[in-house]
Structure formats: C-alpha cells, structure tokens
C-alpha cells in the first residue's frame, strides 16, 4: 500500500473574474521512503497541489473541488481540520521556497524550531531545546546552542533553509513536501541543500515530494517524476523514462530549452507562446496551442493520461494512439 495515494484532485480559486481551476484531476502515489519529483513551469499548479494536500490553501478564495488523498488510511482532503493539524508538522513536514520570508522574524530560531516537538510530542521546553540543538547540528549548523537564541535576520539564506529543513524533519515525518527548496538560493548553495535533503531522507527513511521547475534538480535525486502543465499531469514515470525518453512533446520541449542539453554554439530553444488562461474551459490538450507536433485531434479530441505497459504514462493523444514517436529524428540540435 502506498504511503500517500492521491486521486482526481482538483482545486479552484474564485475571483470576481471567474473561477480558475489551478489543479485539475491530478493523481499519483508515493511509497514509503520514495522520492517523487513534480516539475513544471510557474503557474502549473504544482505548489497549489502540495498546499491542497496539507490543507494550506486559503479557503476562500480557494476550494478543493474533488478528489481523495489517502495518507495512512486517512483522507487528507476530508478529515477534520483538527486531525489534519495533528498530521502537519508531525507526520508530514514541509519546506518552502523562500527561506527569507518563511521564518518568523519576530521569534528566535530555537522557539520556532522546537515548536513541532512541543505541540505534537508534548515535550518539555528543556527536552525540546536539547533535541533542537541536535537537529541544528544534524543539518550542519555549527555552534547550535548559541544559534538557537539568534533571530532569522542573523542567518544567511542557505542557513535559514537548513533551519527550515531541520524544522520539517524534527519529528521524523513519513513524508516531506519540499516546495522549490532551492529556487531562492545561490547556485553554490543549491547543491548542498539538495544533498542535505537526500542524506536526511535516507537517514530517517522519509518519503519526499520535491517540487521544482528545474529538471536538472529532479534528475539528480528523484526516483520518479511527474510533469505538470496548466494544472494537469502531462507525463509521469521513472526518472530515467521521463528524462531520457520523454513521451510528451511538452517534456521534450522543456528539455530542449535547458542550456545543459543544448549543443555549444546553437541558439537556446524557447517554447513559443504562453500557458493557457485557466479561467476558460480547455478542450483537448492544454499544451496543443504551443506544440510543434499538434494536429486537429489534439485541439478537439479528449486528452487523458494513459499508463503504458512499462509504467510510463503520458497525456499526449498522438503518442497514445501510436502516430508519433519522439525519437532521435527530433533530437537533432541537442545532445543528452
């Protein structure tokens, strides 16, 4: 049985301009100790997906329209707020994008760090503080006892993200959701933070959902990958499948637009057009207007995620129907 099993999750935001369906019928499973990468450009709904699972979507204006998210036999989308609260920070830890704003500037690092311990485990202040010092040391922060008394503004961005990681993992959660944990950091720090997440995951045997817009990050540490676009899953499979043999033109285009995949001297590829307006109903494939392989049935026909025999799933109608093969013929101009 998977640790978390999500089916048909849809989340919408309501504004005066209409209803925007930000997450659209998304489903996935994640096993204990597994690492799932969710990739997509900004606005593809990957962050809202994570917030929907943990009840952090502000309601209103947001609404969870449908779906089920079974976590250890409990449906996260329907259980009481009190039950969900007892899971957050306890069995599910979260790491956010911007460590500069995600820590409370008015509270000391120590008091924020040990809060999950005092709330969920009922530890006394003294016990919690001792565990907090261990946790800081574990994420590579030196002189932890003194650092506990300091405030966020006395920490660098990378150090703050280490604190966030320590805080998310302090209760040994079964699942860690990391929402673009390296996006706001310097490139040199990014790798350190990813290594740290990987090492701690291994040590605590936690499952990790890693949200990112950087395919390179996913390639490094994820076992399975899910590609999102316009609130839907366009492709999913093992990291090897999705990244080396993409079965959706969008993933293909994303790879082509990465500098690392482009031959020296060639102009960097960019995907033409812009993501669709989600306040309008989309018939057919959401990527069709920007797709270089688009034919009539992409725009008009139904578009569904289909799992192939090898476990590699794609929502591209042409590939599913067998009339398109993204093979080496199209890879001219870039190397792997």
């Amino acid at each position: 049985m998977p640790l978390l099993s999500v089916t048909n999750l849809s989340t919408s935001f309501h504004s005066r301009r209409g209803t925007v369906r930000v997450v659209n019928s998304v489903g996935f499973n994640i096993d204990k100790g597994e690492t799932l990468g969710i990739a997509g450009e900004s606005g593809s709904g990957k962050s809202v997906l994570c917030y929907s699972l943990t009840g952090l979507v502000p309601q209103p204006p947001g609404t969870i329209e449908s779906g089920e998210a079974l976590f250890d036999g409990c449906d996260l989308l329907k259980c009481t707020t009190e039950k969900l609260r007892s899971i957050r920070g306890n069995r599910i830890g979260m790491i956010f994008q911007d460590p500069m704003t995600s820590l409370n500037p008015y509270l000391s690092i120590g008091s924020q760090l040990v809060e999950p311990l005092t709330i969920h485990r009922g530890l006394s202040k003294k016990e919690a503080s001792a565990r907090g010092i261990d946790a800081l040391t574990e994420v590579g922060i030196q002189d932890a006892p003194r650092r506990m008394r300091q405030f966020p503004h006395e920490f660098s961005g990378g150090m703050r993200q280490r604190v966030m990681i320590a805080m998310a993992l302090i209760n040994n959660p079964d699942l860690v959701i990391a929402d673009e944990p390296t996006t706001a950091l310097d490139v040199t720090v990014q790798a350190q933070i990813l290594d740290l997440i990987g090492a701690l995951q291994h040590k605590h045997n936690s499952a990790v959902i890693l949200v990112t817009h950087d395919l390179g990050v996913i390639a490094g540490i994820c076992k399975r990958v899910m590609i999102m676009y316009a609130g839907r899953v366009l492709e999913s499979g093992s990291a090897g499948q999705v990244l080396s043999r993409p079965r959706h033109p969008y993933t293909f285009a994303l790879q082509k637009s990465m500098p690392a995949f482009t031959k020296r001297g060639n102009e960097l590829y960019t995907i033409p057009g812009a993501p669709p307006d989600l306040s309008r109903e989309i018939i057919g494939c959401p990527f069709a207007p920007r797709c270089e392989f688009k034919i009539d049935k992409c725009v008009n026909g139904p578009c569904q995620l289909l799992v192939h025999k090898d476990g590699h799933a794609t929502a591209c109608v042409r590939i599913n129907d067998g009339d398109l093969l993204l093979d080496t013929k199209y890879r001219a101009g870039f190397t792997e």
């Binding site: 943990t54 899971i87 409370n104 999950p116 709330i119």
Partner: peptide
C-alpha cells in the same frame, strides 16, 4: 498573509497560537 504564518500552519500550530504567538 506573510509566508511565515503559512510555515506555522504547516507545523501544525493551533490557530489560536498562530494568532497570539506568531
């Protein structure tokens, strides 16, 4: 609306404590 309030929610801090402490 700040991010660190969301962080507190993600930690499972009770709503009253979010208001009074965070």
């Amino acid at each position: 609306p700040q991010d660190f309030i969301r962080t507190a929610r993600a930690k499972g801090v009770p709503e009253w404590k979010i208001i009074l402490k965070h």
